[in-house]
Amino acid sequence: MKRQSVLLSVLLLLALLVSACTSAATPAATPTASPIVMTDGLGRTVTLAQPAQRVVSLAPSNTEILFAVGAGSQVVGRDNFSNYPPEALELPGLGDFMGFSIEQIVALNPDLVLLAEIHPPELVKSLEDAGLTVYYLKNPLAMEEMYPMLITVGELTGHKAEAEALVTQLSLRVAVVQQKLANIEERPTVFYEIDGTDPSKPWTTGSGTFIDTLLEMAKAENVGRAMDSQYGQMSIEALLAADPDFILLGDANFGVTPEQVAARPGWGELTAVKEGRVLPFNDDLASRPGPRLVDGLEELARLLHGVTLP
């Protein structure tokens, strides 16, 4: 009897706890003169009373875009992987994909939280529940789709003109590369290594990724396209059979060097290894859907075709 009454009181306590809090009112938005109304990558309508002055960016690509369109001084927080431009490192890190501190984001009192396609819809929901304004940027599939993202971020932060100027400048640089590569007939084959921790089957990328798009634009043949997935492990045997002209080390940022690659069992047979065409590559230039994709394209043109660019 006693046990049951104790239990009952615990249940009552919890029930009270729950009911007391569900009835709490949510604060209403204040209407203003000329709000910014935009539809984000999830089809949500996002309304800002004025250009965002306190922005939290939770993806490295978003941080790069914000700084590139001139809104760097309005960024008040970032995810732990946002490391470019260097000024971004001075901002407080708020967590990474394993978990963001919603509390710390709320405490920064941002008027806009900029998310990207790496974030789950649950995060959008959690931030909204905390009363924050969220804009979700969808990944571009081609270079041309990246430009509107820059304009969007410019509009959200009140830097539309700068964003448009940036787009003009970037598309000009892309046009220069394309012109320099216009007469190239022979397309070199490239193996792009994402992670070679297991040298018998390194991770690479198939079609449908930024890396593949950039290789295509740089007039190269991605040998990873033989796989049917976007990311996967290719066996060293398949790599030997493909015998690519170049091996790009996207894992160079993690300390992998061409010397280490040459020492891997079986890799010495590869033409690229024998002829010294194993090259470190800054993966951030190819994996973050932002303005530095153009840097990546230029770098590929230099490395694969020996093109000189300004």
């Binding site: 569900t22 394993m98 789950p120 649950e122 929901k125 959690s126």
Partner: peptide, 27 residues
Amino acid sequence: LRSTGELRRAIAWLMGGSSMGGWQPVL
């Protein structure tokens, strides 16, 4: 292993790190 992109979210989920907040889950 076949997953593209949502891997980290899945791993976090499998380790008990779901990020859904609010009262709906409780109810």
